[in-house]
Amino acid sequence: MTAMTMRAVQAVEAGGAFVPARVPVPEPGAGQVRVRVHACGVCAGEAIARHGLMGARHPRVPGHEIGGTVDAVGPGVSAWNPGDRVGVGWHGGQCSTCAACRTGDFANCAERLIVGADLDGGYAEYTVVPQSALARLPEALGFEEAAPLMCAGVTVFNALRKSGARPGDTVAVQGVGGLGHLAIQYADRMGFRVVAVSRGREKEEAARALGADDYIDASDAGGRGAGAALAAAGGARAVLATAGDAAAQADIAQGLQGNGTLLVAGTPHDPIPVSSLLLVTGRRSVQGCYSGHAKDSEEAMEFAVLTGIRPMVETYKLEEAEQAYGSMGTARFRGVLVP
């Protein structure tokens, strides 16, 4: 019997372009679910598969912002049924037995899986993942709306709700792009006074429409830098850095209030040169913002439905994955592949 095949896009060599291919439709094993992909967001995290980072092997199907439906279930799966609307994010499941998992810290599982890096992701018509990786999609969200919330959305949602900031506090969002435009909405709906920070004025109108109360042009901050401009305006209890620029992240940290936190979501892969004096004298801190597990994703989506948060998306055909990946720096604001 000839195996069924599907359309997919693969990373086939380190540093090479994404390549359309036909591959066998995967079969779910014990504890696994096959998802028919209706939409898959395009994220900078695809660099892991593209460049063979963090142990990723080639060929690999990237993609970890998946919205779809359950197509088939493997032995031992009882919580999911064919036709269920589901999402799959960065977190591809946990062992549930290591020291971190036993405390409920699934993000730090010793055996955690990354969708699109350790296992094939959503740049395909179907994907197979552990059942623990599935989040239930609210009926009010379309697949193209839900997909970006499975990584970009849950990352900024988790960062903000764990930041220590309270309603009425000032929170700055550095970068108004795929992550930042969602961070502005989440911060606004959580009751913070939101300051958007970006280079130039072309994104100011959009930032304010999304919920920003104020805007700082990082390229025109009176020669002082965006961090000094933020400090002069009263400073921020938290700064969520979504743009992957180490120098810009170090600069915006100058705008933290005492006891404030720089939340790093954008990863420049370079050291962030934050002054130790700045940290010590104001008891300020720098904190990494790691995505979230399936339940976190469900809560991020439920909050989005409750408060009217929606990603701004541009859709592409599956075969246009390379084009979509290359447009991330200019798209407004999140590319989504629609198989």
Rank of each mutant, 00 (worst) to 15 (best):
L182A: 09
A172Y: 11
T170M: 06
Y186E: 13
V154H: 03
E145Q: 15
H181W: 11
A165G: 06
A187W: 10
M190L: 15
G178I: 07
A159G: 12
D188F: 13
A147L: 01
G142C: 02
V194S: 02
A152Y: 06
A183C: 11
M190G: 01
V173Y: 05
S163E: 02
A172K: 00
L179P: 08
D188Q: 13
C151Q: 04
A152Q: 09
V154R: 10
V195N: 04
P148S: 08
L141I: 07
Q185K: 11
A187D: 06
Q174F: 15
L160Q: 06
V173N: 12
A183P: 07
V195D: 05
V173Q: 11
A147D: 08
V156S: 00
F192D: 02
G168C: 10
M150D: 00
D188E: 14
I184T: 00
G153Y: 00
H181T: 09
V173I: 15
G175K: 07
F143V: 05
A146S: 13
R193A: 14
Q174S: 15
T155G: 11
G153V: 01
G142Q: 01
V156R: 00
A159N: 07
C151H: 09
Q185H: 13
T155F: 13
G191Y: 11
S163H: 08
F143I: 07
A146M: 04
R166L: 14
T170C: 12
P167G: 02
M150R: 04
P167A: 06
S163D: 04
F192T: 07
Q185M: 09
S163T: 06
R189G: 03
Q185R: 08
P148M: 07
I184A: 13
C151N: 01
V171Y: 09
V194R: 06
L149C: 07
A159E: 01
A187K: 12
M150W: 04
V176L: 03
R193K: 15
Q174A: 15
G168M: 05
G153Q: 07
V195Y: 03
L149P: 03
R193C: 12
A146T: 12
A146I: 07
V154N: 03
L160W: 02
T155Y: 06
V154P: 09
G178D: 06
A152V: 01
G175I: 12
R166V: 12
L141Q: 01
A159D: 06
V154Y: 04
L179Q: 07
P148T: 00
D169G: 01
L149N: 03
H181Y: 07
G175C: 12
L182I: 13
G178S: 13
G153F: 13
L141T: 02
T170A: 15
K162Q: 15
L182W: 10
P148F: 10
E145Y: 03
E145H: 11
L179C: 05
P148Q: 10
P148A: 05
G177I: 11
A172L: 10
P167L: 09
G168A: 10
G178E: 04
Y186F: 15
T155K: 00
G142I: 05
F192E: 06
C151W: 04
C151G: 01
M150S: 10
P148D: 02
L179N: 01
L179Y: 01
